[in-house]
């Protein structure tokens, strides 16, 4: 058994999400920022469905604090968004794990839309300019990258034997 029962993979995937949350294209146009997927939502949603015993709203909320300082946002905002994504994933885990990846994409789209609305509204109340594109762009791209995230993480999760995998992933490969 690998250390932390494979939990390090969950940590690594979250750190990767952090890096991708601030990585940039030098000299790229402004609107590129509106196409940045909410990687953390995709990653935590995946783990919420694939290994619901390993992640929860509480841990997602704490992870959110790190994202908040990373993107220089108000503390607690990303936390509640990630907690919401994890909650939905865990709550409907049995149903979601039976879904095809495209059905999951639709769910991720809905979650991402709600999250971006919460985020932009909160930022607007904290005197940061409102931007409709900042709601629409990340919602779309998060849904679009989800299959890729799910593919990579499920492949890795089976390789390193993350404990607590459910559904199709839990069965012996």
């Amino acid at each position: 058994m690998s250390p932390l029962h494979g939990g390090w993979l969950i940590l690594v995937s979250l750190v990767a999400a952090m890096v991708l949350a601030v990585a940039r294209v030098e000299g790229g146009p402004d609107w590129l920022a509106w196409l940045r997927p909410d990687w953390a939502v995709a990653v935590l949603f995946f783990w919420g469905v694939a290994a619901p015993s390993r992640v929860g709203p509480m841990s997602a909320w704490v992870v959110g604090l790190f994202f908040d300082v990373l993107v220089a946002g108000p503390l607690g905002l990303t936390g509640i968004c990630l907690a919401f994504a994890t909650y939905i994933a865990k709550r409907f885990e049995e149903r979601l794990s039976l879904y095809t990846v495209w059905q999951q994409v639709a769910v991720v789209f809905g979650i991402a839309a709600v999250i971006q609305l919460i985020k932009r509204t909160a930022l607007f109340l904290l005197d940061i300019e409102w931007s409709t594109w900042a709601v629409l762009g990340p919602t779309l791209t998060t849904a679009l990258v989800y299959p890729l995230v799910a593919l990579l993480l499920s492949f890795a999760a089976q390789r390193v034997h993350v404990e607590g995998l459910t559904g199709q992933l839990g069965r012996a490969p």
């Binding site: 929860g56 709203p57 509480m58 909320w61 108000p74 503390l75 607690g76 905002l77 936390g79 509640i80 907690a83 919401f84 909650y87 865990k90 709550r91 909160a122 109340l125 904290l126």
Partner: peptide, 24 residues
């Protein structure tokens, strides 16, 4: 099967709102 989770989510929402209030 989620008796614990919803109060937790509420508590976290409350915590976030308090933090955002302090920030504001």
């Amino acid at each position: 099967r989620q008796g614990q989770i919803r109060p937790l989510l509420l508590a976290l929402t409350l915590a976030s709102c308090v933090l955002l209030g302090i920030e504001k």
